[in-house]
Design a protein around this nucleic acid. Structure first.
Lengths: 177, 177
DNA sequence: GGTTGATATGCAATTTTATGCATATTAAAC
DNA sequence: GTTTAATATGCATAAAATTGCATATCAACC
């Protein structure tokens, strides 16, 4: 299960609660692997039962108590094995592109509007990527190896998002003509 | 269920059997929405029960008999409604990018090899896209509206794939330094 | 005569993901 | 004092995807 390994990857840098993990999966790692909080809590429970993570209950004042998870040695080993193992390329799934095949039979304006919505989403996402980049990754050549990987993942996000925006622009221009 | 609508979209142009649909989902529409043959046969059965497609059994010599499905009027209506309805943006999921976060703790060479494999996949895919483009879409401005949508989906595939190749090259160059 | 590969369809079980619901604390705003 | 928002965790169910079978015809090859 990849979700478990994405969670363990997030736990490499810091020990986190389910709630905090869910927030990380909303940005950062979540740009490349997403999950709902329900999924995350469930996966954490299973990881704990398999002893791949340890758990510690933390009493808090002002907030509900939380349970902090940390990678165990056994978890690290499992993660290493996963990293070196088979890496599947998930086929893309995009409703909008399937809908593009239906243009002409339905209302063109409404599909144009959908492309504009998509464009807006990507613009927001790109701004977020750029913000992270400018704060932490201005000098990629001199990052430690570990950070270079994270930097490259971020670059993947930036490039793909820029490309998507360009596609939206091209499409809008062709369809509005 | 989006798969049903992707199938109905494929049935817009021609009546197809489950087997033929599965082949379409391996290329063409499948670049943007993928499914296994088991999924497709199941969805077709349900679509038929809902009368969104009609079925006709065809006796064949030299091959097993097959069952050809066609969109019904009710199917067309359902498809129109879906096209105009809410369009979700699926969050991307890419194991390779999650693995990038693990560089440095595991064998760099093996991750570099994975990026090279990924690059090869994309090069093949791009060649396929380009072939389709050169055969059918050399003059996008003068396509009928319906075909413009398909052309734009193809362009999305081309742009995204080119971007992925560029990312692989950038990554290989940074990691090999 | 036997294997391989393309054609053709499907069930069953499992895993993964999505959706809806449920609960509880505290701070801040109105 | 009541609503809203953030923090915090989770169950139960439904939908979707994956994986492992299972079957059958016919042509081509060895």
């Amino acid at each position: 299960m990849s979700l478990s390994h994405a969670i363990m990857t997030a736990l490499l840098d810091e020990d986190l609660s389910g709630y905090e993990l869910a927030k990380r999966f909303d940005v950062s790692l979540g740009f490349f692997w997403s999950a709902s909080h329900q999924q995350i809590y469930k996966a954490l429970k299973q990881l704990h039962e398999s002893a791949l993570v340890s758990a510690k209950d933390i009493d808090q004042q002002g907030k509900p108590n939380k349970r902090i998870y940390a990678l165990t040695d056994s978890g690290r080993k499992d993660l290493d094995t996963w990293v070196l193992g088979e890496t599947r390329t998930k086929p893309a799934k995009d409703e909008l592109l399937v809908k593009m095949y239906n243009i002409g039979r339905s209302d063109l304006d409404q599909i144009v509007a959908k492309i504009e919505v998509r464009r807006g989403e990507h613009v927001l996402k790109l701004a977020l990527f750029r913000k992270i980049e400018s704060r932490q990754y201005l000098d990629p050549e001199n990052l430690p190896l570990r950070k270079k990987g994270v930097y490259l993942a971020l670059q993947a996000g930036i490039l793909q998002t820029e490309t998507s925006i360009r596609w939206c622009d091209d499409s809008l221009s062709l369809l509005k003509r």
